[in-house]
Every structure is written in C-alpha cells, then in structure tokens.
Write a protein that binds this DNA or RNA. Sequence first.
DNA 1: TTGTAGGCGTTATCAC
DNA 2: GTGATAACGCCTACAA
Lengths: 338, 338
Amino acid sequence: MSATLTDIARATRTSVSTVSRVLAGGAVSKRISSRTRERVSGAARKLGYRPNLLARSLRTRKSNTVALLVSDIANPWFGQIASLVEQALHREGYSLVLCNSGEDREREREYLQLLPQKGIDGLIVVPVLHSKQDLLRHLPKNLPLVILDRPIPGIPASVCSDENQLASSLCETLDSAGVKKVAVVRGPRHISTHRTRHKLIARRFDIVALHSGPAQARTGREAFIKLLGESEDQSEPDAIICTNNFLGQGVIDSIAEIEQPPIIACWDEVAMMHLSTLPVVTVVQDVPTLAAGCVSQLLPQLWGEVVEINPIVLPGRVITNRAFQQRSGGVGEGESGG
Amino acid sequence: MSATLTDIARATRTSVSTVSRVLAGGAVSKRISSRTRERVSGAARKLGYRPNLLARSLRTRKSNTVALLVSDIANPWFGQIASLVEQALHREGYSLVLCNSGEDREREREYLQLLPQKGIDGLIVVPVLHSKQDLLRHLPKNLPLVILDRPIPGIPASVCSDENQLASSLCETLDSAGVKKVAVVRGPRHISTHRTRHKLIARRFDIVALHSGPAQARTGREAFIKLLGESEDQSEPDAIICTNNFLGQGVIDSIAEIEQPPIIACWDEVAMMHLSTLPVVTVVQDVPTLAAGCVSQLLPQLWGEVVEINPIVLPGRVITNRAFQQRSGGVGEGESGG
DNA sequence: TTGTAGGCGTTATCAC
DNA sequence: GTGATAACGCCTACAA
C-alpha cells in the first residue's frame, strides 16, 4: 500500500541501505553526500513514505509504545489517570495504548498475553488478578512493569494510595462526628481495594448492616433499599460507608427525604457532593501524583537503568460538604488535610 | 526471548512449516499426522511458545486490532463508549486499543499517522479535525473507518446523535417552562458539537449573555461568575444553557443560593442532577446504541463486504429533575421521550 | 504428509 | 559514501 524503502531506492537509483540511512536522520544520515540525501528525502516526501512500524519493531525489538491496562475504563477515575499518563509518556516520546479488562479476570489474562506479543515496551496495569504468580505467568520475564492502584505483594514497582491512611482519616472524621454504628456498602470480594477498606472500617466501627455487589451505582441503590427493610430502631446506623464513589453515588441517589438521614461516607470523588443536603464525607486520592508516579517508575525500566524501585504510597485527603459540617458541629471545615 | 517456530522445529526435528501448520490449527493442522502433531504441540506448550504478532501481522497484513481514538478520555462519556465498544469488538475476536488526542489537533494527527503504521485493521475516531481532507490525509486509502459523535461531511460511515432533534427537544421543554431569555455557556469554537448547539439555541431564544472556553467544569464556573457581574435586572436570563455536561456541572457547582435561580439546561448526563434543588433539564444521548452503531458500521468494512453504509443518527431524550418540574408547572414529568 | 524457499519492510554488518 | 546481504519471526506457495 504505502511506499517502502525499496520503492524509494528504485526511484532514486540507490539502495535500501542508503535510503534507510538518510531517513534515519541524525548522525548516520550525515555520512551521506548531501546530494543523494536530498534526492532521497525528496522522493520519500513525494511518495508519501511512512515507515512500517511492525517491520521496524520486529527488527529493533522496540516499539516506543506503552500499554495501560485498566480494570474499568467506564469509571471516570481511570479516565483521568489515563489522560495524565498519556500526556506524560507523550512528552517522553512514547505513545500509549489503553486496554480495558472490565474487571474480568479472563479478559485481563488475554490482554496480559496479547500485549507483549504485540511488542509493547512496557506495561502499567491495574490488576484484577491478585497474585504475583498469576500476573507474571503471562508476561515476558523482563518486561518493564508497574502496578497501579492495587499493589501486589512481591512486585516493588507499584503506585497506590495509602489505604491505612485513607481509612484512618475517614474514620477519624466520622468518629469526631459522633458516629458509632455504621452500615457498609462494598464492592466485590475479589477486588483487594474493597476487601481492604471493609476490613479497616470493621476495626473502628460497629457494622450493623452490610451489602456487597459490583462496584456500581446500582449496588448502592439496592443496598439502601435493603437497609430500609432491615432497619430496626435500635440498630440504625449513624453512617453509611461505601467503598467507592459509584456505590456512594447510588446510595445518595436513593435517599429521597428522611428526617434524620445518616451520614454518607465514601472513597473517591463524588460529583456535586457539596450541593447535597445530605451530610457527605469522602476521602480522595491524589490522582495527578499517582499518574506521575507510574511514569516515574516506568521510565527508568524502559531506559534499562538499574535503579532500585520502591513502592510509592500516597496520602489522600478528606472532603466534607456543608451538611456534614453542620451535623458534626463545625469540626473539619471544608477540607481537612490527611 | 520467547520461543519461536524455529526453536520448536529444532526441538522436534521437524521444519518450521510443519510447526506453523500444527499451531495454525483448524483445517491445515488436520493434514499433519497426529503423531507429529502431538509432538509439536507438546513442545510448543513446554517451551511456552507465544506467536510474535508483529511478525505475523507483517506477513499477513492483518492484526485483529481496532483503534478507538477519542478526543478526551478524561470525559466519562467517552469512557462509557469505549467500554461498550471494547466488549462488542471482543465478542468478534478483535482487540481494542484506545488512544487519546486530548482535544489537541496535533496529537490527533500524530495518532492518525501512527496507528496505521502500527498495523491496525480499522479505526473509530472522535475527530478534533473538521475536514475530510485533513483527516484522510494521514490515513491509508482503504483503512476501514468510522466517525463517532462528530460527523464529517463526505464520510458516510458515521454515528452520532441527531443534534437538531436534541436541541429541539431541549428548547421545547424550556419553551413550555416559559423561558425567553437565555445565557449560553459553550465549549471551544473549533469543536463542531459546540458550534452546532450554540447555533441551534440561537434560533429559538434570545441570548442575553455568552461565555465560551474549554469544555470543562472550570469554564462553567467562570461563566457563572462573569454572568453575575454583568447581570442587569432587565436582561437576566431565565435559563443558562450549557453545551455539555462538564460546563453544566461547573455552573451548578457555582450557584450557592439564589432566591430565584435560573433554569440550568445542558447536553449529556449530569451526575446527581435530581438531587439538586436547582431546576435542571438535560438532553441525553443513547450511548449504548451509539457504541453498537460504530461497531456495526465497522465490521462489514473489516470483513471486506461491500455494503452501502449510511450515517446513523440517533434521537436523544430529555430528563428533568423535580425542581424543574415544579418550576415549569408539572409539564414534562421525569423523562419525556424525544 | 512434510520440507524448501521466498518474502513481508526494516535495520545492521560487512565489504568496497 | 554506498551497496550487497543477512537477519527479525512468520506464513505459504511449490515441491517432493
């Protein structure tokens, strides 16, 4: 279809080597007489030459491409991350391909196999699989790899938020608002994030109700309905804690009007929470720094530098809305650092 | 690194062609004696053979990969689309790579060049560039192509919402709520969506104020502040119309408490709008059908079928929240079809 | 049923 | 300075 080196060589009565050297640019091209150099690059332009990157990568074993495999691209949180990672890598001359496992182990395995076969130089992954072994099984031994958001024991190149700190901050805020009994709405058992958060909540509060399901708004709505049915006066929760923003959104959506609504607490940004008349408190992660962290851990690996790589673990911060501040008696105005 | 056909051939004392045939599976592999077949596939398994897809694609000129180039992956709308497209293509045996131009013409051009060079079989693009010529300039002549969301004159394979219908539905709803004068908050001039929507609004209402900027919440906030400053009593708008959800979100965010707030109207889903005490009306697109449409237009092209392809243009529907319904006197309860 | 050989478009190593 | 020539790993006629 497109013109090849051979075409240009024929057109200029030179050889593919010469053409290749000219088009390579830089030092190598300087060693070619400026006359033929111009003839060649002229012909290349005229024929609309585009290098075949498959052939090049096959030969050089480099693609200047990094893959980001996320667990759910429909979640705006990952969209933000992806956007930032893309920009950062672009500045370094790499292009990014984004793939989506949809929280499906099997799809993740497929991409884990497929991507290296397609010749990527490095991989950033938000894993659905938990174990180092499961993950690495499908990957070439030396592929530069960074784990994002869901650290895996034994893999040092990873970037995530400090779940302990996030949970503590959130729980402390709830504590000082007088919360004792809570209901928990959590995502699936097989996602470590949700497991961890649930566990950390359990350490601090009396869990009087629990609902779990896919980490989507639907689950939040179901949870609230179920809660209503179950609630007996003596065990009514002071707060409903959700292990991510989708769940929180669902719960908030369902609450029409209650005389004394519980506090809604959750992880990650909730759109327009400060408009809500419900008391809402969230603990948010530092997305830009997470994205930058990924890239900073990946680049040295790509460059073949042998530097020691340690996990990056970032603090988050608590955000409350006005209704919450009023409820909790002015403690933790607006944003309280973590 | 990984084992190759040659390695397996050596290990089994056969030739690469035999190995290739066995591993190809299907009809070709049946023509190999079951004895060598098992020897070969056994060795392949033992050596952990993974076909080099670069080499294969170079040879076969097929990659079973489709690219989706979106204009802003940080926008959840595109995340949803991407997720649905990915699933649909996966069912058909294609894998999807997602790239992000970030609403940047130059980045779009780069990817438009790069992706075909990497050997994709087809491309779905949400273009930042407007003209057919600009777009096709960088693409191989026969690359299967579908335009998503921002149709381009002269390219028949495209899927988008019916902007006229969306605008009409929205305007009619506003009309029957008694809206006469409006303020408009719109995205950048170079994005056709925003241009078109602005134009359609102008036909129906008296625009007393206008603000434009990047299609992000920030712009919505700026707009509201600017509006406050400018507003003189006699020219106060009855509604603020935003040309997408981010802008709308920004405006809503900024409005603390006003005695008689204007109606907020915008395109696309706004999170938790029905919690808001502000009157909000939106017109939303049919995302799943848009995604399915893309795929249905792409597949026949990938299969080399010569079918006539016509643009797919989908209706949207209006959604209002309770505050809006009260304001407009019970007209258009909940969702009114379009 | 199986092997040999050529080529996909590059880059890299020799020679001249 | 420039040109053959050999890979990279795979597929596929064409032979045998």
